[in-house]
């Protein structure tokens, strides 16, 4: 499903974020990306939807080399991926409901079907009762769950989450991870970047551990 081979990423500023990274993730797997701050977790995740391009090596998603995709092909790659961003990227000028509705704007659903999907996604993360609220009225954990609802509303095959439990207490973090586990249970491939070792230990899944841009074991 996703495979990296000999991937290196050097940013324009000269910062070497990844070096010789190679791994393969099968469909339906649940994988943690672990490592210290600055290890390259976010960079690794950004290579999958081609938000960043590798400096060398190849990143394959469904057999497609996403590093060399044309600009015009990117939207179609990204529609099949659900992404929870490290900075969430919620839109504060519209309601919880409308935030989740965004990814459905360029799908083929009519208004009624789209609304049904939005409510289903909000229900899964326990925010159905807050659909008219503004994101600023939500707690940190609720905002995180809103970001997850938006990522899954399109029912993507792959779910990518960058530090989805940062700034959350242990109980909320476990709740969030359980939501991911439930998506994984129905066949969604899940990648979660985190530096929370206690959480990783608790969920006991496959771990890709990064240190200074390389995978360590």
């Amino acid at each position: 499903m996703i495979s990296f081979s000999a991937v290196a990423k050097r940013y324009a500023g000269g910062q070497q974020a990844l070096n010789g990274v190679g791994f393969s993730i099968a469909q339906g797997e649940f994988v943690f990306i672990a490592g210290h701050s600055g290890a390259g977790k976010s960079t690794l995740l950004k290579l999958i939807p081609a938000i960043e391009r590798p400096s060398s090596g190849s990143v394959l998603v469904n057999g497609q080399n996403v590093g060399s995709l044309q600009r015009a092909a990117l939207p179609y790659l990204r529609r099949n991926l659900g992404i929870v961003f490290q900075d969430q990227k919620l839109l504060y000028d519209r309601s919880v409901f409308d935030n989740v509705l965004l990814p459905l704007a360029f799908s083929d659903f009519d208004g009624r079907e789209a609304a049904k999907r939005v409510r289903a996604a909000l229900d899964k993360v326990g925010l159905l009762a807050r659909d008219r609220a503004s994101p600023v009225q939500l707690s940190g954990g609720e905002q995180q769950r809103l970001a997850i609802a938006r990522a899954v509303v399109n029912r993507p095959a792959v779910l990518i989450a960058d530090e989805p439990t940062a700034n959350l207490d242990a109980a909320s973090a476990i709740e969030i991870l359980e939501i991911f586990a439930s998506f994984n249970q129905v066949g969604v491939t899940v990648l979660v970047a985190t530096h929370d070792e206690a959480l990783i230990a608790r969920f006991a899944r496959r771990v890709l551990r990064l240190a200074r841009g390389s995978i360590v074991d």
């Binding site: 939807p49 938000i51 015009a72 990117l74 939207p75 179609y76 790659l77 990204r78 529609r79 992404i83 961003f85 990227k89 839109l91 965004l102 990814p103 704007a105 360029f106 938006r150």
Partner: peptide, 16 residues
């Protein structure tokens, strides 16, 4: 700007 960035990230085409 924020909305446009997000739209690009979640798969909106330029035309959209």
């Amino acid at each position: 700007r924020a909305e446009i960035e997000l739209a690009k990230l979640i798969g909106a085409t330029d035309a959209f």
